[in-house]
């Protein structure tokens, strides 16, 4: 596959750019680490099982930030720079740049969950075998796919200023409704009835299956798959529409 080398090239330079202006990485890492210290350490930190599950929730919270907010804002900003159309004159299709974005975002996610893992390891009773941790990170990357697609959709659909607002407005409710911030048990009834269908619920159930061996809810997994397809269709639509606009 001749494009593989180009995918790596695009990933490398996009990641370099992100590392040199690390503000979005810092932002992605800040919220989950702060929430970890504010909610998890004082309330569930002493119990190994609930501390582990809460840590998974915060990792997903951080990854969602990188996917939804980080990706949508960087796509929307890039679209406003003349560099973006220039790249389309280079001898490569859209794949290397697209794949580079996804891989860079994934790398950013892994960096942004590191503080959560450190806080969890040193300040709570959470315990994980290396195998469970690896499975959990795999589940995190898989579960984050629909959020990356949503980030691409927002980034290609609206201008940069709007992308910041839209992605943040989407981010907190989706995270809260899925029970990432506060356990669903303490939520009102209508939230609990809505939760299984929210994409963050399927993603967190996937992570809990990976780190704790819990059986995930089939309804939530099906909803996650449906959200992934929907977000993929929306992202493709927005990308084509954007190309169409620049063609015109």
């Amino acid at each position: 596959m001749p494009d593989l080398r180009l995918v790596l090239t695009h990933t490398r330079y996009q990641f370099l750019e992100q590392l040199r202006v690390p503000i979005s990485l810092v932002a992605s890492a800040f919220f989950p680490a702060a929430a970890m210290l504010a909610f998890v350490v004082p309330f569930t930190g002493a119990d190994p099982a609930s501390a582990t599950q809460a840590t998974a929730g915060m990792m997903l919270f951080g990854a969602m930030s990188a996917a939804l907010i980080g990706l949508s804002v960087s796509v929307a900003q890039d679209r406003e720079r003349p560099w973006d159309p220039y790249l389309r004159t280079l001898p490569a299709g859209p794949l290397p740049r697209f794949a580079g974005r996804i891989l860079t975002t994934m790398a950013g996610m892994l960096l942004s969950v590191a503080p959560v893992l450190l806080i969890s390891a040193f300040l709570t009773a959470a315990a994980l075998s290396p195998l469970r941790l690896a499975l959990g990170i795999g589940a995190l990357l898989l579960g984050a796919v629909p959020f990356m697609l949503m980030g691409l959709f927002i980034g290609y659909a609206v201008a940069a200023r709007a992308a910041i607002a839209v992605s943040q407005v989407a981010y907190f409710p989706i995270a809260a409704l899925g029970g990432l911030l506060v356990p669903l048990e303490v939520m009102p009834e209508f939230v609990r009835s809505l939760a299984p269908f929210v994409p963050s619920r399927g993603a967190i159930e996937l992570m809990w299956a990976a780190v704790a061996g819990r059986t995930p809810s089939p309804v939530s997994l099906a909803a996650l798959a449906a959200w992934t397809l929907l977000a993929a269709a929306a992202a493709t639509w927005a990308y084509r529409r954007d190309e169409g606009r620049r063609f015109s």
Binding site: L6, L16, E17, W83, Y86, L90, P91, A92
Partner: peptide, 30 residues
């Protein structure tokens, strides 16, 4: 077909965080 052509971007859009040499290597990698 575009492997045989070169185009100039607008300088206002060059990625500010990359180094001059890096941007040349990035483009020529295509």
């Amino acid at each position: 077909v575009r492997q045989g052509i070169g185009v100039t971007p607008q300088e206002t859009g060059l990625p500010e965080a990359l180094k001059a040499g890096e941007i040349v290597s990035f483009v020529s990698a295509h």
